[in-house]
């Protein structure tokens, strides 16, 4: 019975939680916005005067900014393409009846449990290192010159590493989606004369549309803020070849001790994330409606 009184009481009861959540979110955001308008460099203690949008002007005119922006989008896009494509392929394979199914599924999911710094270091030293790495060893076995992954193709290397981490997530979600497809639909398609290609294109892929949407949305949120993998492998370099927005903010606020500029970068990153989110929701969000 939701009377006037009980509803008022309910609001009163949940208000502490709401207030805490609100503070939790609003205070850091407000402080970031505030700092971004100050000249606030830790190397120059003293007064922190209000300078308006000066920090933003510096951030936008920074020669690294455009590269970082493009890198961010390339990183997100590249990882999405690889994980969604690879995830669908792996999910289709794992859906087959086979010997040792349980163990294989467990192994496929395992990379997700490896923390980003560790997996990036493993890739850097054990695979991509031209002297000690497995790829270099393979190249030498064929008599070829080892490819210097992290210097010759730094951004692509990071895309590979991050894709490896996120592939299990995509696979897992897409696998459960494939398993929820009614077998009668596939049988009906088979009776209707659809081969594997047609079945995939007309029955399985449309069925997966919603799961793919979820994978893209969730991954985008996390991929926009990739940081640890860059820090432990390329350090954003060579130059700024593998610097994304998150890393640029780190360079400016922590390496240059410029809190004001870093905050401005953070706000720009928030705005960018929201722009990407709006585009994504426009493009594929309609798949989420039943």
């Amino acid at each position: 019975m939701a009377t006037q009184h009980s509803r008022a009481a309910a609001r009163l009861m949940i208000s502490p939680a709401v207030v805490v959540l609100l503070l939790w979110m609003i205070v850091p955001l407000a402080l970031t916005l505030y700092f971004s308008t100050l000249r606030y460099n830790l190397l120059m203690p003293g007064a922190n005067p209000f300078v308006g949008l000066e920090n933003y002007r510096y951030f936008f005119t920074d020669p690294a900014f455009t590269t970082a922006l493009v890198n961010t989008l390339l990183l997100v896009g590249g990882v999405l393409v690889i994980t969604v494509g690879g995830g669908i392929a792996l999910a289709l394979l794992l859906d087959q009846e086979m010997f040792g199914q349980g163990i294989v599924r467990l192994l496929v999911i395992a990379p997700f449990f490896v923390m980003p710094t560790v997996s990036a270091l493993v890739w850097k030293n054990m695979f991509m290192d031209p002297v000690n790495g497995l790829f270099g060893y393979i190249a030498r076995a064929f008599g070829a010159q080892p490819f210097e992954w992290l210097t010759a193709a730094p951004l692509f290397s990071i895309i590979l590493i991050v894709s490896w981490q996120w592939l299990p997530f995509a696979t897992l979600i897409l696998l459960t989606a494939i398993q929820s497809l009614s077998s009668e639909q596939l049988e009906a398609a088979e009776m209707d004369g659809a081969g594997f290609g047609s079945k995939f294109l007309w029955i399985i892929l449309p069925h997966l549309a919603r799961a793919i949407t979820v994978v893209i949305l969730i991954q985008t949120i996390f991929l926009l803020s990739i940081f640890a993998e860059i820090l432990v492998t390329t350090g954003g370099g060579p130059g700024v070849a593998s610097t994304n927005l998150t890393y640029l903010v780190y360079i400016q606020s922590l390496l240059q001790f410029d809190v004001g500029l870093g905050s401005a970068g953070g706000v720009v990153a928030i705005v960018l994330a929201n722009i990407v989110a709006i585009f994504l929701m426009r493009m594929i969000g309609k798949n989420l409606d039943a």
Partner: peptide, 21 residues
């Protein structure tokens, strides 16, 4: 023969319609 080549049509208990078409 595979199902499609038998020249038979089947109506399933769950109808098995393609929901997105």
């Amino acid at each position: 023969l595979p199902p499609a080549k038998r020249g038979l049509a089947m109506v399933f208990q769950s109808y098995a319609l393609y929901p997105h078409m």
